[in-house]
Design a protein around this nucleic acid. Structure first.
Lengths: 361, 361
DNA sequence: AAAAAAATTGCCACCGTTGGCAACTTTTTT
DNA sequence: AAAAAAGTTGCCAACGGTGGCAATTTTTTT
């Protein structure tokens, strides 16, 4: 078993072969301006030949930079996380950073310490914080105080332009309200997410506000709270749909719960969208896979991730003015699919019509 | 804006205050045996008082260890990746490692270089490689040659016990075959994944083998190749279901494609499972959310991740005998839900019955 | 053409830790 | 009690880069 692992080439090797000092090689690597054109070419050639790659640790030690970014989150939806991660990685790989993922518990008392320790241990250059952890103000101020770059993703502008990317969930929910109202729905239900999360309250309030513009009001018994899971979507839907007077339209705080509603409607024999309109929020992969395909709000998650990462790397690289020019707000949009339709007035009338049709044959 | 970030204390501070040399402090940190009891206590006390935490980069530079693990993959299903990641992180956080995620392109000519550069750049202690990248033998041998610990996840035992965790997809597919046969299906179709992936061929061969035990054979025109996406699932399903003689059961290489089949069946008015049985593979979140819920094969993805990570950390820490004791094989299992049922003989007969019923009313 | 300015390059210290080896203590052996 | 062995501890040189500053070369100015 020959272990002939060719030893790593170092900056010294490059320098020696290229016939320059290692300081110059270092300059070439870091794109310093004051390097002669011919020298640069010569060095680059050797770098390629040797397949030389700088040692991140040594680099970090000397410059107190690690080219490592952190992603902090607490048990998010798999599809959401995947979207974010893809976006972040896209920018990272372009700009030469790597990504360290770090789950943690939002509710934990040691959250702040955990995160700070994580940053120190791995000497991260900066962190991107996902909701709901991003809503912790104690963490945010600890981060600010520690002086490390960070960007938060959220539905509310709870930090300065430099440190946040928000999606206007409130406006999006209002748009959904408008859409529902224009379809003629009046008996509308809302399945909210946990009220301790900003995204949940934003969406609920936006929806209610949007509806009120059309004179529609959701009575309290038509508002149920789930925890954003498919399972609680099912629970809430059951409660809503087995009543004597059931809603003609249900808006759920996310696609997972909306999928739960679809499931219950199917098992109760309620036709979607003829007898019931259902809409979700997120537009993740699930939305287009279920039957009927979900009308939903598309959150530009990946774009948010892109913006956040760009913003952060810019401020890491001291490009603060540029960082401020990166957009800090994105607008989710309505995506209409098959699960929503005009309100066919009373369900009872509908059933009667069916009966008539049946007899006729 | 006071930037009062208290500067990090170093090993020198600890040494000075404790009145020992920094070498001794280093020994205490690393749990070296030859440190006097009283000295250790004294040093530990100072460490706590100063809240000293060793600098990972300096440590890495000096010892060539980083406590960083890498996860290499190429554009996997979001749900699969999430499962794996969760499993890996679980072990990591317990054992004090962090995880760096690194997407790459399996087909790329520079794959091997990209990965090696990634490992070097971040001085990873080891990498976990996901399919299909895990099937690249050139990468595997480069990894082996470079001497860095690695573990591959795959459906085939293509490496030594120490370097792989496999799921027996072949046997699982055979079990599905058995199940189909026992339900009485004979006109069975298979939607395969890309034939260049081992997991695809394993599942297909296992399925065919299992079927042949019951004297059932799948004719070539009943085997279509998708690329594991929902969309190609739809395409293949359309081809299969719009024929004069359509299958009574379809087995898809994964849940995504099976969901596509469900969609097409619904739009063609084909009842599942009464007129058509559909099954997938993976048992990811999607399987239970679609309607009807998918019968599928549950792959213990998270468990594989757990095993792989444990195995790797053990071999990093030179605990080779222990690493070999970690299981290297897991068995996926059949999960029966609503999308499969007994074959109601001929579809034509079925239609005839429906006609009769229609006339009767 | 000499002086001044600018661009390019090299030298050396240092980042914070670990490893090798020597030195010093303490315990055990003879 | 001296010698040998074992247990502790300290010194110094890496590890592989970057930063400051001085030295050198080239360009521009007077």
């Amino acid at each position: 078993m020959s272990n002939l692992m060719q030893k790593q080439s170092t900056i010294n090797d490059v320098a020696r072969i290229a016939g320059v000092s290692k300081r110059t090689v270092s300059r070439v690597i870091n794109g310093s301006l004051s390097v002669g054109e011919s020298t640069r070419l010569k060095v680059e050639k050797v770098i390629n030949e040797l397949k030389y790659a700088p040692n991140a640790q040594a680099r970090g030690l000397a410059s107190s930079r690690s080219y490592l970014l952190g992603l902090i989150y607490d048990n998010p939806d798999a599809l959401y996380l995947d979207d974010v991660q893809r976006g972040v990685l896209e920018v990272c790989s372009t700009l030469g950073y790597e990504l360290v993922v770090h789950p943690c518990r939002y509710q934990s008392e040691t959250l702040v310490n955990d995160c700070l320790r994580f940053m120190r241990r791995s000497k991260l250059d900066g962190v991107i914080v996902l909701p709901p952890v991003s809503e912790s103000e104690t963490l945010a101020s600890a981060l600010k105080e520690s002086g490390s770059p960070y960007v938060r993703l959220s539905s509310v502008a709870l930090d300065s332009q430099e440190h946040i990317v928000v999606s206007d969930d409130r406006a999006a929910a209002a748009e959904m309200a408008r859409y529902f109202a224009q379809l003629g729905h009046e008996k509308i239900a809302f399945i909210s997410g946990p009220q301790r999360y900003k995204s949940s309250t934003e969406r609920m309030e936006g929806f209610q506000l949007g509806l009120s513009a059309y004179g529609v009001k959701i009575p309290p018994q038509m508002i149920l709270e789930g925890n954003n899971s498919f399972e609680t979507g099912i629970e809430c839907a059951r409660q809503l749909l087995q009543r004597d007077e059931r809603p003609t339209a249900i808006f759920a705080n996310n696609d997972q719960m909306a999928a739960g509603v679809l499931k219950v409607a199917y098992s109760l024999g309620i036709k979607v969208p003829d007898e019931l309109s259902v809409a979700g929020f997120d537009d993740n992969m699930l939305a287009s896979r279920v039957t009927p395909a979900l009308t939903t709000i598309r959150r530009p998650v990946r774009q948010m991730a892109l913006l956040a990462t760009t913003k952060m790397i810019m401020s890491i690289e001291q490009n603060h003015k540029a960082a401020l020019n990166v957009a800090a707000k994105v607008a989710p949009t309505l995506v209409v699919r098959e699960s929503t339709g005009p309100c066919k007035t009373a369900v009872v009338a509908n059933n009667a019509a069916a009966l008539v049709a049946g007899r006729r044959s």
